[in-house]
Simulated scan of single mutants.
Amino acid sequence: MDLFSLALGALLKAVGELTDDDLTRPSGCEGWLVRDLVCHFVIDAQDVLITLVTPTAGPVTHDAVTYWKVAHEPADDPLAALTVRLAAAYGEPWMLKHHVDDVGRAALRAAGMADPSLKVTTQDMVLCTSGYLGAYVWEWTLHHLDLVANLPHLAGPLAQALARCREMFEQIAGPFPAGWSDVDVLLVGTGRRAPTEPERAALGGTWIPFVLG
């Protein structure tokens, strides 16, 4: 749960440093500008706030890793186009940044006050709060990489968040070469970057990235 707050805090700091020009640059999410990705953070933070106040008595069915649906091809997301339209609807860039900071800080406060053993429900799943917030370490960290993909002047995700995400990802996809950086594992493993020929050979030839959503 501490790592959730650290990862989200680092992401919000990076968003706060975006210039108006930065928001118009392509992000690491295919087809999305940085402003579209930042708008997605609003939706993510709202989801966290909603889930943390949706307790259940049902048995736990998922944890931080099994929360994610795994595929080898991106699935159609009906909210993707809506997110782009919502991002464009903000009249001024500062309005979008303010909204993200507002709901993001609220999510930080809510996570800090949450009982880690409380069971919550979302998307027909039941998780302990600690497991749910642990799943979002992946969300914040991967999208932090997307945020800074074309903005090298911004700080990337925290090292401990990257290490945890690599650990989670290798539970799903299997181990990667030990000499690879956590960033390279996450970018190549999720299809955000094509492997080089030596990397492909190290992965055993044909490599199909994993999509977690």
Rank of each mutant, 00 (worst) to 15 (best):
15 V>H: 00
72 H>K: 09
92 E>M: 13
79 L>S: 13
83 T>N: 13
30 E>N: 05
82 L>Q: 15
38 V>N: 06
10 A>P: 00
95 M>N: 14
109 R>H: 12
33 L>F: 08
23 L>A: 10
12 L>I: 05
35 R>S: 01
80 A>S: 14
29 C>G: 01
73 E>M: 09
23 L>N: 08
42 V>L: 02
81 A>D: 15
59 P>F: 02
107 A>I: 02
50 I>T: 11
106 A>R: 14
90 Y>D: 12
69 K>R: 12
72 H>M: 09
66 T>S: 11
62 H>L: 04
19 T>Q: 02
31 G>W: 01
38 V>R: 01
107 A>E: 05
71 A>N: 07
94 W>I: 15
80 A>D: 14
22 D>P: 11
67 Y>L: 09
21 D>F: 08
97 K>Q: 14
78 P>M: 12
36 D>Q: 08
19 T>M: 06
110 A>P: 12
24 T>P: 05
23 L>M: 14
87 A>S: 13
79 L>V: 09
67 Y>I: 07
69 K>E: 10
80 A>K: 10
100 V>C: 11
41 F>C: 13
97 K>D: 12
88 A>F: 05
20 D>W: 11
97 K>F: 02
101 D>M: 14
41 F>Y: 13
55 P>G: 09
21 D>V: 14
103 V>A: 04
51 T>W: 01
61 T>Y: 02
99 H>I: 11
14 A>N: 05
14 A>H: 08
73 E>G: 10
96 L>F: 08
17 E>M: 01
15 V>R: 00
44 D>Y: 07
26 P>K: 01
21 D>W: 01
100 V>S: 11
44 D>R: 00
37 L>Y: 05
70 V>E: 10
65 V>A: 03
49 L>Q: 06
82 L>N: 15
33 L>W: 06
105 R>K: 09
102 D>P: 03
61 T>M: 01
59 P>T: 09
